[in-house]
């Protein structure tokens, strides 16, 4: 009997899971080819100062609608080593649950003061910090009345580490019926930001989201 890898589950993610999820099991990578499956990104984009503050379009322009929040944390590999100088990109909907993205046809209003994209490099200790707007939840599938709870998307890329994920909020509306939360099962708590007080800075509250990401020496499943 041929040994095979995971069989991916079809959704129930947003719109295209049925069309895009392979029906066959994944294949096991032969040991001799393992290294070739670990992309290493050396080049990082030029980053402008202030790209980690999403709450204003420029320092003297008005704040976007909604609660300004801080999201911060440390990125470690699974052996506990910090991921230094990695690119962290975030994107999230505005207060009303609307993305500025071309493809978002949701009926909620755009906020002219909120673009909803930010990025920065982690520091020597693998730390990152963003200010953004507490995002709204939104009706992702009007056809079946399915909502997505509020969440912030993150993409992390540095060296041999790569992760695309989302940060969720504790006990938020629609968490329990969210397709991605259901797929994560008991591990959902790993993707919830932990709220903290921010008495001395100009945001309403903070969320600590520490991330553990696969490092280059990780063991492969066999």
């Amino acid at each position: 009997m041929e040994k095979l890898g995971r069989k991916l589950r079809i959704g129930p993610t947003d719109n295209t899971s049925y069309e895009r999820t392979p029906r066959e099991n994944l294949r096991i990578i032969p040991p001799a080819a393992r290294d070739s499956f670990l992309p290493y990104s050396r080049v990082q984009p030029g980053i402008r100062l202030g790209e980690n503050d999403l709450t204003r379009l420029a320092p003297d322009l008005p704040r976007a609608d909604g609660d300004a929040i801080e999201m911060s944390g440390q990125i470690l590999d699974d052996t506990g080593q910090p991921l230094r100088h990695a690119l962290v990109e975030i994107w999230n909907a505005n207060k009303y649950g609307k993305y500025a993205h071309d493809l978002d046809g949701y009926s909620a209003p755009l906020d002219p003061n909120f673009i909803g994209l930010g990025r920065m490099l982690t520091d020597e200790e693998g730390r990152y910090k963003f200010w953004t707007i507490d995002p709204g939840c939104y009706l992702a599938r009007p056809d079946i009345n399915r909502w997505r709870p509020k969440h912030i998307h993150l993409s992390i890329r540095g060296g041999a580490s790569r992760l695309i994920t989302q940060m969720y909020f504790k006990d938020a509306e629609h968490n329990d019926t969210d397709p991605m939360r259901i797929v994560m099962g008991d591990d959902f708590h790993l993707n919830i930001g932990k709220q903290y007080e921010t008495p001395n800075i100009d945001v309403e509250r903070g969320y600590k989201f520490d991330i553990v990401i696969r490092g280059k020496d990780s063991t492969f499943f066999e």
Partner: peptide, 17 residues
């Protein structure tokens, strides 16, 4: 350490990057 869960990139990844 337990790994943070992977999640879908969704449809709204910033094209401008």
């Amino acid at each position: 350490l337990p790994l943070t869960n992977e999640d879908t990139v969704g449809p709204y990844y910033p094209i401008c990057y």
